[in-house]
Computed example of a mutant assay.
Amino acid sequence: MTTPMIELREVSRRYDDGPPALRHVSLTVRSGEAVAVLGPSGSGKSTLLNLLAGLDRPDTGTVTVAGVRVDELGETGAALHRRNRVGMVFQFFNLLDDLTVADNVVLPARLAGMGRAEADRRAAELLESLGIDRHARVHPGRLSGGERQRVAVARALMNRPALLLADEPTGALDTAAGQDVSGLLADLNAEGQTVVVVTHDLALARSCTSRTVRIADGRITEDVPSRNLAPETAR
């Protein structure tokens, strides 16, 4: 039996004196799955993403990604975890406007020690496969929102991560661009990429994932095939 890509066991996280952001959450995601984490603001879904990325640690419980106990990593180990195992896509792209598209995409590989020629080849392949190679020498500020999100996806895939995390990836896009990015995530998953999409958008969950986990008040309240989501699930 293959090792799960993600395994959380009895994970809880509380900030200061507020209510727990996560309460005894257990979750398993298989390699190659596309899973949406659905919930309103404050439900705990962003905390879950931060724990998977090693940006935060649980108060109790264990977080394992690609066979590695992320909750046991120190600051350097967590940074290497994000560099080598996890690709991240954000709502507002987080691209560097003073760099070209190609240089934005190359950056993670260069930080990981990849040679310039090899990194350039990898970036060119990604930009071509994502249909934005014609923008390689353009600065991100000249691109549409959908194009910038494609650049962000290319950057996230640069180091061939085992896990792709997408945090509200269509939240800053219009409907057409959002559907474009949703289709891109579905295509990546069809090619074998494990994807976790954190969102409050029911339509996004249905369109690019096969399974949806709903979180409310820090607890998992529903874990169903995305095609079975009822409209009230989005509330």
Rank of each mutant, 00 (worst) to 15 (best):
125 E>Y: 02
1 M>L: 13
78 A>D: 00
178 G>Y: 10
149 Q>H: 09
161 P>A: 13
88 M>K: 00
84 N>L: 14
169 P>L: 04
103 D>V: 00
22 L>D: 05
187 D>N: 13
54 G>P: 03
111 L>D: 02
194 T>G: 07
177 A>C: 05
43 S>A: 15
43 S>Y: 03
178 G>K: 11
5 M>V: 06
220 I>H: 07
39 G>D: 05
136 A>N: 10
190 A>F: 01
123 A>C: 12
1 M>K: 11
214 R>G: 09
84 N>T: 10
150 R>H: 08
21 A>T: 02
137 R>N: 13
230 A>N: 00
26 S>L: 07
101 V>H: 07
225 P>C: 04
155 R>H: 12
44 G>A: 08
207 S>H: 13
63 V>K: 01
117 A>Y: 00
106 V>S: 13
8 L>Y: 05
152 A>Y: 07
94 N>L: 12
120 D>L: 11
154 A>K: 11
138 V>S: 15
148 R>L: 05
220 I>T: 08
60 T>C: 04
204 L>N: 12
4 P>H: 05
191 E>F: 00
14 R>Q: 15
187 D>T: 15
63 V>F: 02
188 L>P: 12
203 A>S: 12
33 E>C: 10
190 A>D: 14
205 A>T: 04
135 H>D: 10
203 A>I: 01
188 L>M: 10
109 A>I: 02
175 T>W: 04
18 G>F: 01
174 D>V: 12
211 R>F: 08
188 L>N: 09
229 L>M: 07
34 A>Q: 13
103 D>K: 14
79 A>E: 09
168 E>D: 11
212 T>F: 07
206 R>V: 02
176 A>N: 08
157 L>D: 11
148 R>I: 03
155 R>L: 11
102 A>H: 12
57 R>M: 01
232 E>I: 07
224 V>I: 14
211 R>K: 06
45 K>L: 10
184 L>N: 13
161 P>Q: 09
26 S>H: 08
175 T>I: 06
100 T>C: 08
226 S>P: 03
164 L>R: 11
232 E>V: 11
203 A>C: 01
104 N>Q: 10
227 R>V: 14
96 L>N: 01
190 A>E: 15
130 L>C: 07
67 G>E: 01
37 V>W: 05
16 D>F: 08
161 P>H: 12
181 V>L: 12
32 G>T: 06
106 V>Y: 00
27 L>K: 05
195 V>T: 13
127 L>P: 09
130 L>M: 10
176 A>T: 14
84 N>Q: 15
32 G>Q: 11
140 P>E: 14
79 A>Y: 02
207 S>A: 15
230 A>Q: 14
134 R>C: 02
208 C>I: 05
225 P>R: 12
194 T>F: 09
113 G>W: 10
147 E>C: 10
194 T>P: 09
184 L>Q: 12
164 L>S: 10
172 A>S: 15
181 V>I: 15
10 E>Y: 03
79 A>Q: 11
233 T>M: 01
185 L>W: 03
179 Q>S: 13
131 G>W: 08
13 R>F: 00
36 A>L: 09
89 V>S: 05
97 D>T: 09
63 V>I: 06
195 V>H: 07
130 L>F: 10
150 R>P: 08
166 A>H: 06
221 T>R: 13
132 I>A: 07
71 D>H: 14
213 V>G: 06
84 N>D: 15
153 V>A: 11
220 I>R: 03
